[in-house]
Design a protein around this nucleic acid. Structure first.
Length: 633
RNA sequence: GCCCCCGUAGUUCAAUGGAUAGAAUAGAAGUUUCCUAAACUUUAGAUCCAGGUUCGAUUCCUGGCGGGGGCACCA
């Protein structure tokens, strides 16, 4: 039994004995004492004031006296206002320490027998990966590992958005301006090459849109039908009306621009290409397969560099038809309804949501259609799957709320457990990223930059000279990735974040490399300890535990709870911050507790044991964040 | 217009309703005859505003203000 529980039940008994009253089960809490107060554990007595009919400080004193007598581990106590601070005996902390060391796989929970799925990455195939994807990928990958540590069996998946008009944009541009360029001929990574054509397409698209807008301005509405023309004129009037707010004007301008876009030749050609794709036109399909293959090869290289992988990859081109089937089945069952124009809708007004289109009037799939198909396929393919976790940006919150509800209505009760691991946008100091304009922090470039930063800093330290040249590259990579991953994972996912490239390659302060460095130093100490010492780590020590060692032990004891919390809240950031506190506390301990020059051998052994345990916790924490620890750095 | 999320030191981030709101960085001042100074120590600096609930509110509720996002037969 944990000491907290033991103290808790003793406190209940105390209240009954002292005040003759039973109290509700959740009335008392035993928590770690704040740093700046003396003591290890704290009970708040304010809540007992009514029951005891006394002032909180008096209650705290009486409670403290009782607990000190009845709980052997309590060595003393002090009272500040209504707070009862308990000091726990060194012997107890040494027992805790021994227990942690003996636990196999310390921190992890036993198997839950549950299967969960985490989806992440899920890029479009027409643009290279940027820092926003990096946040997504690191989050999902880390979450998968954290759930595993919580005892679940985890399947890592991604869905690749490989069909639709946006793919045709790159294809069309390549056909028109590519001159047969290939990754081999140009030396470009496949995803970069395809991305270039997406940018080229959009450049032309923007140009043509501008021309259409100019025609609108001149009163020439071209192919617009009567309804559209009326709408366009109304928007133009609104934009010219000086009584309207700037915000209204901007949105009117955006609406007019959208209208103009539909009138460009180039988008018409892209849509024609999509129709050919849907009817399996061999030439279009060949081009599509070739360009997609280039992209996949490029993505795979990026994933390898990131150190992430997947158990299963789904392609929308293979699941969207399944989605259509499911929608039609749902229509038969009465889950959906059909409008006159044959479009199919879900009525979610009973659940406080809106009406939602699930199939177009012409029978083609929308985003929702595909997601329904994919989700159902996954439940079928994975018997026992009890949860699907989608790592997707927070702009999709409404979409997933609707998706989960629809799945439930279709009879997939497990969808109730589904979770949208939503995260805020990554912003650059220079402003928003726009992939259509090619203004992004490219993921491959970033990884290269952090590696170079790691190399230049590490190169100046003396340690690197003792390491064989051949291993340098690998060490720089680990450090660079540690910096980048930690930078993106330490922030609570729900928050939008500022990505400052200069800060992300920083190796000091609240960073991944700081933690890695602490671990590397422990390794170095332990190597030397094992050479020199006759005692095994932690052997035969029963003496005092000084303040910095005690605080370290208390922190390490929280590890299993932190893993649990991180999993329950779906936030690697909790774990990331914890790892930093551990490293920080270790460094304090390290500063005034010598291992190799200890006062007596047993004390050295104790400290070496504490080093070992700290290393274990740090290494595992970083592992759960997807970060590796170099042997030396 | 309706809906969702976020507002904490100069900046980037923390804080199950608890005590004197933590870090990092930038600023000031220190610590290497001793295990990796990518470290450690000291110092200065913040809860958007107004109400409410509570013994106690950064946290919960209401209303403002500021920032982001969503309300498509786009994905």
């Amino acid at each position: 039994m944990h000491l907290e529980e033991k103290i808790n039940s003793a406190a209940y008994a105390a209240v009954e004995t002292l005040y003759g009253e039973q109290m509700p089960a959740d009335r008392l809490t035993v928590e770690p004492t704040r740093d700046n107060f003396e003591g290890d554990l704290t009970i708040t007595a304010f809540k007992l004031a009514r029951i005891a009919q006394k002032a909180p400080p008096i209650i705290a004193g009486e409670l403290g006296e009782y607990l000190k007598e009845h709980v052997a581990e309590i060595a003393g106590y002090n009272v500040v206002k209504g707070f009862l601070n308990l000091t726990i005996s060194d012997r107890y902390w040494l027992e805790v320490f021994a227990r942690m060391r003996q636990a196999g796989n310390y921190g992890s929970a036993p198997s839950s027998g549950e299967v969960r799925m985490v989806e992440y990455a899920s890029p479009n195939t027409n643009k290279p990966l940027h820092v926003g994807h990096a946040r997504n990928i690191f989050l999902g990958h880390s979450m998968a590992r954290i759930l595993e540590a919580n005892g679940h069996e985890v399947k890592k998946v991604q869905i690749i958005n490989d069909r639709g008009v946006h793919i045709c944009m790159s294809m069309l541009a390549w056909e028109r301006w590519g001159n047969g360029e290939t990754p081999a001929s140009s030396g470009l990574k496949g995803d970069k090459l395809v991305g270039n054509y997406y940018v080229k397409f959009n450049r032309e698209y923007t140009r043509q849109t501008q021309l259409v807008l100019e025609k609108f301005e001149a009163g020439n509405y071209g192919r617009l039908n009567e309804e559209q023309t009326t709408k366009a004129k109304a928007l133009q009037a609104l934009i010219r009306n000086d009584e309207k707010s700037a915000k209204d004007k901007n949105s009117a301008a955006a609406a007019l621009k959208d209208l103009a876009k539909t009138q460009t030749d180039i988008i018409g050609e892209a849509q024609a290409m999509l129709r050919k794709w849907e009817t399996n036109d061999p030439e279009v399909r060949r081009l599509w397969e070739m360009m997609n293959r280039w992209v996949y090869e490029g993505f795979d290289a990026t994933y390898r560099a990131m150190g992430v992988d997947f158990d299963t990859i789904y392609y929308e081109s293979e699941t969207y038809l399944r989605g259509k089937e499911e929608v039609l089945k749902g229509l038969e069952k009465g889950v959906f309804y059909q409008k006159e124009d044959r479009s199919v809708w879900a009525d979610l007004t009973e659940d406080g949501l809106d009406h939602k289109l699930v199939l177009r009037g012409d029978g083609t799939a929308v985003y929702m259609t595909q997601d329904i198909g994919t989700a159902i396929l996954r439940f079928e393919e994975n018997p026992g799957l009890m949860q699907q976790i989608y790592t997707v940006g927070n702009e999709q919150e409404y979409h997933f709320k609707v998706l989960f509800l629809i799945l439930e209505k279709l009879g997939y009760k497990m969808a109730r457990n589904n979770y949208h691991l939503s995260y805020g946008m990554v912003e650059l100091p220079t402003g928003k990223m726009k992939s259509r304009e090619g203004k992004v922090a490219d993921a491959d470039d970033l990884m290269e930059e952090v590696k170079e930063a790691a190399a230049s800093i590490t190169g100046t330290s003396g340690v690197i000279d003792e390491i064989p040249e051949a291993d340098h590259e690998e060490i720089f990579r680990k450090i660079g990735m540690g910096a980048l991953k930690y930078f993106l994972l330490k922030v609570d996912p729900v928050k939008g974040m500022m990505f400052d490239p200069a800060a992300s390659v920083e190796l000091v302060g609240h960073t991944g490399p700081f933690i890695q460095y602490s671990a590397a130093r422990i390794r170095s100490i332990l190597r030397k300890y094992e050479e020199k010492s006759e005692l095994k780590p932690a052997e035969n020590y029963h003496g005092e535990v000084n303040a910095s060692a005690r605080e370290l032990i208390i922190l390490l004891e929280q590890f299993p709870a932190i893993i649990r919390e991180s999993g329950e809240k779906y936030t690697p950031s909790t774990l990331a911050n914890y790892a930093f506190y551990v490293a920080k506390q270790y460094n304090r301990f390290n500063n005034d507790n010598h291992v190799l020059h200890a006062e007596i051998p047993e004390l050295g052994a104790f400290r070496a044991g504490l080093c070992q345990l700290t290393l274990e916790v740090l290494t595992k924490s970083l592992y759960l964040l997807g970060i590796e620890v170099p042997e030396r750095m």
